[in-house]
Design a protein around this nucleic acid. Structure first.
Length: 308
RNA sequence: CGCGGGGUAGAGCAGUUGGUAGCUCGUCGGGCUCAUAACCCGGAGGUCGGGGGUUCAAGUCCCCCCCCCGCAA
């Protein structure tokens, strides 16, 4: 089948790979190369690299809904369109091109967590279950009728990065099922329940700022929800310290909020939160690499110091 | 050539105006103790990222290169 695949980051890779393995006649539509890294070298999106390896034609547009994009899409004349973490809003004109319509793979259980960063927000909000959804794409933001859904539990220590990888693979499998069902004519699109819908915003750098006045669980959820990007951080004596991994504890020491109530290489690093003591197990000082807290404490005395 | 912080013992760090390279942990040996991840004593372990230069003398000052990290994108 002729399929136009619209996707950009790593999340889209397993789905794209699946379509390649199934032998479809593909074209990739993705974002332009972006400056990346410390020296701002132009870097192609992950999906583009995969496409190039397989000799799949690549079309890059800042906005595919503009006339250029529309005509390129029309020229490819796909029977079906698939989007996965595309990062662009499609116009009705785009959507009308493929006769079989457009399927989107989304990293949440719609209608919850519509929007750009559903995986991170599910963890930050302390959800215990999430999943992937396939849907018929509409012009709105993740509002189209639901095709198939698959749930998965979130481990209490799982990071966004780990969940990302799992959901990307689940998404690919669900997409495979969805396309098979579409061709078999057994799909029954279900309109989303608007009353249950929630939207999530994009993750910004600032989202990673830790607020120790919150309960230990909320801090823990934030730390793993923004790991590995953009990473959680707090200030200590004017320096930005990144917090990479935390662990909830039953400890009962009391101290000022943000204080390192226990901080030695033997026991580890324990910080007073608004509710409970949180252990920080992995962190990173300016100029340094991320390291185990117990190692960091050998050269960075922190007993009694304050995070803010 | 976007801005900045770093590379010193196995690990994490300190090293002031150039003048015998230190600290904590680990490691090895010994001691103390009912006992210990606790405590005491002692030992091993470093071409101070690499190269060149200045100097009687360079971890430290100057130039070049490599690698790591944060910010900004």
């Amino acid at each position: 089948m002729r399929i136009a695949f619209l996707g950009t980051p790593d999340f889209a890779i397993p789905s794209f790979q699946m379509l390649i393995d199934e032998g479809h006649e593909l074209a990739l539509f993705t974002n332009p190369d972006r400056p990346k890294g410390r020296h701002g070298a132009l870097t192609p999106p992950p999906t583009k690299e995969l496409a190039c390896k397989h000799g799949i034609p690549v079309f890059q547009f800042e906005k595919i809904r503009l006339p250029e994009g529309v005509s390129a899409l029309r020229a490819f004349a796909p029977e079906l369109m698939v989007t996965a973490a595309f990062g662009q809003i499609l116009s009705q004109e785009n959507l009308d091109i493929p006769p079989l319509g457009c399927i989107n793979v989304h990293g949440s259980l719609l209608p919850k967590y519509r929007g750009a960063a559903p995986i991170q927000w599910a963890i930050i909000n302390g959800e215990q279950v999430t999943g992937v959804t396939t849907m018929l794409t509409e012009a709105g933001l993740d509002t189209g009728p639901i095709l198939l859904k698959r749930e998965t539990p979130i481990d209490e220590n799982e990071t966004a990065g780990a969940l990302f990888d799992r959901l990307a693979i689940m998404g690919a499998a669900l997409l495979q099922e969805t396309i098979a069902a579409l061709l078999a004519g057994t799909l029954k699109p279900q309109p989303q329940n608007e009353n249950a819908a929630t939207k999530c915003t994009m993750i910004k750098k600032e989202t990673g700022r830790v607020d120790f006045t919150k309960p230990a669980k909320r801090v823990h959820d934030l730390v793993r929800g923004v790991s590995p990007w953009p990473g959680a951080y707090a200030e200590m004596e004017g320096e930005t310290v990144k917090l990479w991994q935390t662990r909830r504890t039953e400890r009962t020491e009391r101290g000022e909020i943000g204080a390192c109530v226990i901080a030695n290489p033997r026991e580890g690093l324990f910080v007073q939160t608004g509710e409970g003591i949180l252990e920080i197990t992995e962190l990173q000082f300016p100029g340094g690499k991320r390291m185990a807290a117990k190692a960091a404490l050998l050269g960075h005395p922190m007993q009694g110091k304050l995070f803010s």
